[in-house]
């Protein structure tokens, strides 16, 4: 098991290298860092001096190595917009807000999809199934930022139950969490329904029925655990979508997390912050995938890690 975790972490290294390479290339293409630092009216000598100091006259691969060395020592550059603070610090300050939003979204998604998926599968082609399935298709079809705006319109503006935006009140997280979790909830419901239906067709379910077990025992003991495997897989795959959704959701609700920060940083060409967010969020996505894989191996005894 420990070997497996180490092996999985080692596998993350080439992916992270790839991510940093993409970021590095985008940084170089995005404009001359020297000009960004000094401004348009800098003197040519100044520019040349800084260029030398930053090592920008060296071959690209050497620049990339230097860049990687900086990253590894925790130096992600300094933010232009936040008075030259280290970009990593700027981003990390915003991380808890995004983490709580994503956790709420995931929680909503699981709490909605588990019962909805099970009921839909058990009452296949009946009213409960149609209702659950309709909601899940709708959840997939709606752009989540629109859902967010409509939730604001109904529950914040018209009914006044929740705050319109921000994160300062206890109930602030409800609407953004629901917005972020809706797409995932929809997808998980559909997935759980179809994988439960598929599991119910398996030979071992017939065995369980031949044993004289009741329908509820069969579902809880025999079917759900097997269906949980694909459920977990989808959660792992959607980790990335959850982070992506956070960018939009934070914008809609003015939620002060790294998504909102990302948009501000991109708009003001604060590339140090942008690259920090991209790299950090990739690390988060990969870590979530790792956690899901470990959970998966707990549920499925067939997976052996040697």
């Amino acid at each position: 098991m420990i070997n497996y975790v180490i092996w999985r972490i080692l596998q993350m290294i080439p992916i992270l290298l790839g991510v940093t390479l993409i970021v590095f290339v985008l940084l170089r293409v995005s404009g001359d860092p020297v000009l960004l630092m000094l401004g348009e009216d800098a003197q040519p000598e100044q520019i040349e001096a800084l260029r030398l100091a930053l090592g920008l006259n060296k071959p690209l691969y050497q620049q990339y190595l230097m860049y990687m060395a900086d990253l590894l020592t925790g130096d992600f550059g300094n933010s232009l917009r936040y008075n030259g603070q280290p970009a990593l610090q700027v981003v990390l300050e915003r991380l808890p807000a995004t983490a709580s939003l994503a956790a709420t979204g995931l929680l909503f998604a699981v709490v909605i999809s588990l019962p909805a998926g099970i009921v839909a599968a058990l009452k296949q082609h009946r009213m409960a199934d149609h209702i659950a399935s309709s909601f899940s298709i709708l959840g997939q079809a709606m752009p989540n930022f629109w859902l967010g705006i409509m939730l604001i319109l109904i529950f914040a503006v018209t009914l006044g139950w929740f705050p319109v935006s921000g994160s300062d009140k206890p109930l602030s997280v409800v609407l953004p969490g629901l917005t972020l979790g809706s797409g995932l909830a929809a997808m998980l419901t559909r997935m759980l329904r179809s994988s439960l239906l598929e599991v119910m067709q398996q030979d071992y379910i017939r065995t369980a029925r031949a044993k004289g077990l009741s329908q509820s025992t069969i579902i809880v003991r025999h079917a759900l655990r097997n269906a949980a495997l694909s459920y977990l897989t989808v959660i792992g795959l959607e980790a990335s979508a959850l982070m992506a959704g956070a960018v939009v959701t934070e914008q809609v609700f003015a939620w002060p997390g790294i998504g909102l920060l990302a948009i501000q940083a991109i708009n003001s060409r604060d590339m140090a912050v942008v690259q920090t967010i991209v790299i950090l969020s990739s690390v988060i996505v990969m870590s979530m995938n790792l956690i899901v894989d470990i959970l998966y191996s707990v549920v499925d005894p067939r997976i052996q890690h040697g």
């Binding site: 991510v19 993409i22 293409v29 995005s30 990335s240 979508a241 982070m243 708009n267 991209v278």
Partner: peptide
């Protein structure tokens, strides 16, 4: 598949935003 995994690791909205901002 390494390339696929790299692209999957970056939340796509962030990647699109950055690339579109640059290009």
């Amino acid at each position: 598949m390494g390339a696929v995994n790299i692209l999957l690791a970056i939340p796509n909205t962030l990647l699109y935003l950055t690339v579109l901002a640059v290009f």
